[in-house]
């Protein structure tokens, strides 16, 4: 029993991290039809930036905030100089964001080093709780908590504010939103920065979770996020949340019971969705 609960907690924690990455991806896609291949780069920069700031200041809260700021700054640069010039041309967008990814992950190796860097868990999140024989690692619970808070905040932002209303309307029909006199480009920039910030936060949370960070992890997690976005449906935040948790939990159970299949199961899930419902579980766009 304790094994199952532990695996569930692991899976949920991983799922939350993937959700932070996938939520931005799916929102950016839904609103701007841009599939941002540089998103994993933002994630990796968040991780490296977070570890760096944690090493300098020793404050974990500061390192998370710093990672978000770094992610948003890079996101601003990406949006201004890479995505805006080719807006509307899907093939060029795909190509240019991949170029951005390439430069971002190579720059990581220049600033830090090509070798993996260890990342420490802050002292107050070390150790574990003991619930009558079931041992739960504190940091994983913390990751789940942050993920839930971010989801609630995002949900409130999208459903209760005027800006959220505009974003949701934009996902459905951006020409109409524009016709109503709203500067949709500003909304794009905002959503892109929001996504970049969440991705960087995800990276900074992952660093102590996996204990070690390296430049290629951006691509690794971005692929998981792509799978999640396909399964959940492009443009749907609840869809990507459900799919992220599904992928995380399935991955952690498979890694324990049938390790050979742990990566294949996500692929099979994605293939199944592509075959049966290409628009995804919750998606409106095909």
């Amino acid at each position: 029993m304790d094994v199952i609960i532990n695996l569930l907690v692991n899976g949920l924690a991983t799922g939350m991290l993937i959700f932070l990455l996938a939520a931005g991806l799916t929102l950016i896609f839904g609103l701007m039809s841009v599939l941002n291949f540089a998103h994993g780069g933002l994630f990796a920069w968040g991780a490296f930036g977070g570890v760096w700031i944690f090493g300098l200041t020793g404050s974990f809260l500061l390192s998370m905030a710093g990672a978000i700021v770094i992610g948003m700054l890079i996101g601003l640069i990406l949006e201004r100089f890479l995505i805006r010039p080719v807006y509307g041309d899907h093939i060029q967008q795909l190509l240019v964001t991949l170029g951005g990814m390439l430069v971002l992950s190579e720059l990581l190796k220049v600033f830090w080093s090509p070798n993996p860097i260890p990342a420490a868990v802050p002292s107050y999140l070390q150790g574990s709780f003991d619930f009558g024989g079931i041992i739960l690692i504190k940091y994983r619970l913390f990751v789940i908590l942050v993920g839930v808070l971010i989801y609630i905040a995002l949900h409130l932002l999208l459903t209760k504010t005027r800006l959220g209303l505009i974003v949701r309307a934009g996902v459905i029909d951006k020409e109409m939103v524009q016709a109503l006199g709203i500067n949709i480009k500003q909304v794009f920039t905002f959503v892109f920065l929001l996504g970049a910030g969440m991705a960087a936060l995800g990276g900074s949370l992952l660093a102590p979770y996996s204990g070690v960070i390296f430049a290629e992890m951006g691509m690794q997690y971005a692929i998981l996020a792509f799978i999640v976005v396909i399964i959940g449906g492009m443009g749907s935040v609840p869809g990507s949340a459900v799919a992220a948790l599904l992928v995380g939990v399935l991955g952690s159970f498979m890694a324990y019971f049938v390790p050979e299949l742990s990566l294949a199961v996500n692929m099979l899930l994605m293939l199944f969705v592509l075959l049966v419902k290409p628009s995804g579980l919750f998606g409106a766009k095909g």
């Binding site: 899907h90 795909l94 994605m270 592509l274």
Partner: peptide, 12 residues
């Protein structure tokens, strides 16, 4: 499907 599906699926 749209072009990005092929891009993502080949990557995966």
């Amino acid at each position: 499907l749209k072009s990005h599906f092929y891009a993502m699926l080949t990557l995966a």
